[in-house]
């Protein structure tokens, strides 16, 4: 619980007053037409959509999942956030192609690129999927806000989710996309300020850079361990061996008890014992420091195993047993000794083994750099597409995407330094649902009176801008691509804006359902949503831009297969115990292969798109890649100059 003083409340009241002013001011502009309600009249200079791109990459959940990966993997975890580098390539490739096409949204672009029944079905499918996706996004953003309010005010998780997401809905209902862009701009400024302030504060609270480095060099070694749920009422032991020589580094002196359940107080005591063992060099104790034979731990819970590896910095393997040593199971291989590895951006643990394999890194580089040639290779593309189309010119669109994502990558590095500072203060937290709140804890527990209110106003700004972005985007799909296109093509402007408002409300309700499904651990869901969920359509998203022969049937079949396969491989089959929970990069490649087995045969068994349709698209958008036959035809018809 955090107490707010007068100065804190003053900041929050000022912020809410500013939001009300923007909402009322832009209410009139949003009513002019749906081009204003959804695209701000397509006349924005590059720096406005750029701040908006930055703002959409900054939500209340972002510091949570970045803290989740950096607390666990050290600076190497930052590479998880590197996927957004796709924007750097896209700014000069797919962004330009998209802006030239003049499509409002990705679904509309698809109807220019594909034709016939396949394209129509695809547009319907994507309109429906987008409505789901925006509910899903709003669900985890709402949960993030719920966790923050739980931390500050001690509220139930649902209170923060319900109150502040509903507030965002009221804002966007009144002001439309103009309000979204302006909220993004002020949020971009406010958020960058608080991110810098809190992060510097975090580094200072941990004693400054030199102190952080020297402490990490003196801390004991650790590894995370989730005790198997079926090990209850047995006795466990741990063995740590040198990965090169196989010599014992540390092992349990006797065995420790594993209970079905232990009290919360006992659990908290174990956690502080582990943290104390990490922080202090034990002169009289060596070897395994936690858990020891006196400890009783709980089956199914997560713990930090702590040991003293002396001055050795060699890699180790960690094994555990629950049957007195007749069988051992490995929980970490090629793991680090000490804590200095956390400062290394490239702390690899081998080609395929350990927590940070080279294969993982190569996968991420491919995603980040080749992804920029496609459209939709990252789910961020869909809100970015709206930003791209609201820019004044093609060049403004390019600059805005590039500058916005450069800011994002700089921002992530500033965060990471503060999260390493948090690790120095609080090592040994094993539950990701708890340590993913690291950055917020630094802000709310260490900032002085007055600044806490400023931080909360900033968090509110971040939350409202994200909520309003996705409510507006989801409503745009429901209104333009679903209602206007299929249900009532003759609808008036006023009735379209009204349908936009009703669908905003439906999205709000759907987001509460996804809040329940997601629950408390945000980091794992974000890795799924930002990365693995789109694995099966990652390659098709590139092929549609660069390869003329790829048709709507191939693309639609990839989407239909990927939706089910991704949920099955990542969530459903592991939870029912059918397959083990695989490392994320392996899930990515498995989904790429499984889906290719669907869409490649479908593409070759169906006809290419109609040539007239392709030629018209080519002349308008000028795509790059394998477009030979279409380009020749366009030249023959005199639509583009032949060279």
């Amino acid at each position: 619980m955090i107490t707010f003083q007068f100065l804190d409340w003053l900041w929050i009241v000022l912020f809410v007053a500013l939001m009300v002013f923007f909402g009322v001011y832009f209410y009139r502009m949003g009513k002019r037409s749906q081009s204003d309600f959804f695209l701000a009249g397509r006349g924005l200079p590059w720096w406005l959509p750029a701040s908006s791109v930055y703002a959409t990459h900054t939500a209340t959940d972002t510091p949570i999942w970045v803290a989740g990966v950096v607390y666990k993997y050290g600076f190497s975890g930052l590479w998880y956030a590197f996927f957004s580098a796709w924007c750097a390539i896209s700014a000069f490739v797919s962004t330009r192609i998209f802006r030239r096409s003049l499509a409002y949204s990705q679904a509309e672009w698809q109807s220019l690129r594909f034709g016939g029944l396949g394209a129509e079905l695809l547009r319907g499918w994507l309109a429906g999927w987008q409505v789901f996706m925006n509910m899903f996004i709003l669900g985890w953003v709402g949960i993030a806000m719920g966790k923050i309010c739980q931390m500050i005010f001690g509220w139930d998780l649902w209170m923060g989710l319900f109150i502040f997401t509903t507030l965002g809905a009221i804002y966007v209902l009144s002001s439309g996309y103009w309000g979204v862009v302006m909220a993004d701009f002020q949020q971009g400024v406010v958020a960058f300020l608080i991110i810098v302030i809190v992060s510097i504060w975090g580094v200072v609270a941990a004693g400054g850079p030199d102190e952080i480095i020297s402490r990490l060099n003196s801390y004991s070694s650790t590894v995370e361990w989730e005790v198997p749920a079926d090990w209850e009422n047995r006795r466990g032991a741990i063995r740590i061996t040198d990965a090169e020589t196989g010599k014992a580094v540390a092992e349990s002196d006797g065995s420790f008890a594993i209970a079905t359940a232990i009290s919360e107080e006992a659990q908290a005591r174990l956690e502080s014992e582990a943290a104390a063992m990490i922080k202090s060099k034990q002169e009289e104790m060596a070897g395994l420091l936690f858990p020891t034979a006196e400890d009783e731990i709980q089956a199914g819970e997560k713990y930090t195993i702590v040991w003293d590896s002396g001055d050795s910095d060699s890699r180790v393997n960690v094994d555990v047993t629950a049957d007195g040593g007749s069988s051992w199971s490995r929980i970490a291989s090629q793991h680090f000794s000490g804590q200095a590895w956390r400062l290394n951006f490239f702390s690899f643990t081998g080609m395929f083994e350990g927590q940070f394999p080279v294969a993982w890194f190569i996968t991420m580089m491919i995603i980040a750099l080749i992804g920029g040639f496609g459209m939709g290779t990252s789910i961020d593309w869909y809100p970015e597409a709206q930003r791209i189309q609201s820019a004044k010119t093609v060049r403004d669109a390019s600059y805005s995407i590039w500058a916005g994502s450069a800011l994002v990558l700089i921002r992530n590095s500033i965060w990471a330094a503060a999260i390493i500072g948090f690790f120095v203060l609080y090592p040994g937290i094993a539950d990701s649902g708890e340590y993913e709140m690291a950055w917020y804890r630094i802000g709310f527990e260490y900032l002085p009176v007055g600044l806490i209110g400023f931080l909360f106003a900033g968090v509110l700004a971040i939350h409202l801008s994200t909520v309003s972005t996705h409510l507006n985007l989801g409503a745009m799909y429901a209104t333009r691509d679903f209602y206007h296109h299929y249900v009532n093509p003759k609808a008036s402007e006023a009735s379209l804006v009204k349908v936009g408002r009703i669908s905003t409300f439906v999205l709000l309700l759907g987001s509460f359902v996804f809040g329940v499904i997601i629950g408390e651990e945000i980091t794992a869901w974000l890795i799924f949503a930002l990365w693995i969920m789109a694995a099966g359509v990652w390659l098709p998203n590139i092929l549609q831009v660069i390869w003329w022969r790829f048709n709507s049937w191939g693309y639609l079949s990839a989407w239909m297969a990927n939706l089910g396969l991704s949920w099955l491989v990542v969530w459903i089959l592991p939870r029912f115990g059918v397959i083990p929970a695989l490392p994320d990069y392996l899930q990515f490649w498995i989904l790429i292969v499984l889906n290719a087995l669907v869409y490649l045969p479908v593409t070759f068994m169906t006809k290419p798109e109609n040539l007239d349709h392709l030629v018209a698209y080519y002349a308008m958008s000028r795509p790059i890649g394998f477009w030979g036959p279409v380009r020749k035809e366009a030249e023959r018809r005199g639509l583009i100059p032949s060279n």
Partner: peptide, 29 residues
């Protein structure tokens, strides 16, 4: 439940698209 909602939303969109396409085809013939 999460996967089911995603599939239902997407299929509803696609069914509307199919009906729309067929209606347009009938009109043209």
């Amino acid at each position: 439940l999460g996967m089911t909602i995603a599939y239902v939303a997407s299929f509803v969109g696609m069914i509307f698209a199919y009906l729309h396409y067929k209606k347009r085809e009938r009109k043209e013939s």
